[in-house]
């Protein structure tokens, strides 16, 4: 049996993802939500689970440091990694949106549109498609602040309920894309460990169908 390494994004979807693995009979008895440990193994010692920052999951998988990754579509789109995206885990659903102050004029009428985002690549692609030239400012958090203090005209961010947007006096201007958590796989691992990876995917899939 091959040893497999799964990279899991720390944060909001981690607990659900662990549960999903549990449903697929891949358990990590040591795991506890408040634990600071970053590496876990299942009792059979066939699967190693590593917790990494969500923006790094694609890097771990693309470089082969992990065979499998569990990460949001938002990070996959931004990373533009050469990987297989084999399963929609239907967790952490949200969407990419453009948001800005309530009085934002139609975007095509703003000259020199400046967009702040954690996802500059996604932002660039979206506005390129719309034919609107933009400048991007890469931020790592509290993106909503950018239009308020005048650093940017609008933001591109993931929106779950829209509460943060509203509470900061912004409104959603456009939806870009639906997001959910995906299971990604390194292409070389898929070729050389097909059986083991396929088995895990099938197990997770049947676990998914039970939970629906």
């Amino acid at each position: 049996m091959d040893q497999l390494t799964i990279a899991l994004a720390k944060g909001r979807t981690a607990k659900q993802a662990i549960k999903l693995l549990q449903n697929a009979d891949i358990t990590f008895p040591d795991f506890h939500p408040s634990s600071r440990k970053l590496v876990f193994r299942n009792p059979e010692n066939t699967v190693k689970l590593v917790f990494v920052k969500s923006v790094d999951v694609c890097t771990y998988v693309e470089t082969g440091a992990a065979d499998i990754g569990v990460v949001g579509k938002d990070n996959i789109l931004e990373a533009d990694a050469d990987i297989y995206e084999l399963l929609d885990l239907r967790l952490g659903k949200c969407k990419f949106c453009v948001a800005g102050p309530k009085n934002t004029p139609p975007l095509e009428r703003v000259d020199q549109l400046t967009v702040a985002s954690k996802y500059p690549r996604v932002a660039k692609q979206y506005f390129l498609k719309k034919g609107i030239p933009i400048e991007t400012i890469k931020l790592n958090g509290s993106v909503e602040l950018a239009p308020i203090i005048g650093m940017a005209d609008v933001i591109v961010d993931i929106v779950e309920t829209g509460n943060t947007i509203r509470e900061n006096g912004l409104k959603i201007i456009a939806d870009i894309k639906d997001i959910s958590t995906r299971l990604i796989v390194n292409k070389a691992s898929f070729a050389t460990k097909t059986g083991s990876i396929q088995r895990i995917i099938d197990q997770i899939k049947s676990g998914l169908e039970c939970s629906v």
Binding site: G64, K187, K193
Partner: peptide, 9 residues
């Protein structure tokens, strides 16, 4: 072609 432990073709 892929070889085990090498992430790229």
């Amino acid at each position: 072609g892929f070889v085990e432990q090498v992430a790229r073709p």
